[in-house]
Amino acid sequence: MGDILGLVGKRLGLGAIILLIISAIIFFMIELLPGDVAQAVLGQGATEENLAALRKEMGLDQPAIVRYLAWLKGAIVFDFGTSIVTGGSVASAIGERFANTLFLAAYAAMIAIPISILLGVLVALLRNSIFDRVANVVTLSFISSPEFFLGYILILYFSVKWGMFPAIASLNDGMSFGDLLYRTFLPALTMVLVVTAHMMRMTRAAIINLLASPYIEMARLKGVPPWRVIVKHALPNAWAPIITVIALNLAYLITGVVLVEVVFVYPGIGQLLVDAVAKRDVPVVNACCLIFAATFILLNLAADVGAILTNPRLRHPK
């Protein structure tokens, strides 16, 4: 077990370093701007004294590296400073919305993962049949459609024409869990469609790759029934690729949620990010980007670690 822990620790360290570099990129890109935040807040007509006073108040008179370290220190304990536009704390604006986004992603994942793995295995077994080809074209179309296209089609049919689900996923405090699931069904379904297509294709490729390996052929030749070949011989080796597929798509879910949230006016972190970008509210944009990047890296790490845990061969890199 020791060497596994060491490997996982090494990967975690690597992730932390990448996150550190990303935080530096995010922070110092803003330094490239002509003018600064104080100018942006007070506008063009501000006097020199006012600017100097505000710079002092916001700590902008310090050198960039000092401010970066201060910002980083805050970011570690989820203190991202105050928003330029609203003047409120960024952390409190993000907190609840991030939970909403996570909920939506988890909801979509709960539906998408079982369906896509089941279908992926099925299509891999039926490969080159007419069903496989139809599935190929259908999944390709879903992947190629922009999320807002799928979202609006679902709104058009499920809420405008058939009136089955609400078009706007508004949340309020006193909602029951069932009501919550009902109201967020359409945004979740949009993400399910995209992610299922991705995961199906990846699962199919992984399984087909596996079925081509010699020991599967050996099992078949010695007369093992097909379902037993799958369950006993293929599946234990398929876990590693499947876990990778799941983790990568979860990462996609967390970040791909931005467009879906805008379409369905869902109060998540993606919507916040888009609003902040439009208003050029730099502290909020920074914080959102850092959170998204951290989630993305964490899930990619999970994919790596999952692959290592389920495939002993990866523990001894050549």
């Binding site: 990303i22 890109m29 803003i30 490239l32 990010l273 888009v274 730099v282 990047a293 990619n300």
Partner: peptide
């Protein structure tokens, strides 16, 4: 390349558009 690729593309694009 590793570092750039570990930032989600849409988020990175939004970041750059917000700045420039």
């Amino acid at each position: 390349a590793d570092v750039i690729m570990s930032i989600p593309s849409l988020i990175f694009a939004l970041l750059m558009l917000s700045i420039f």
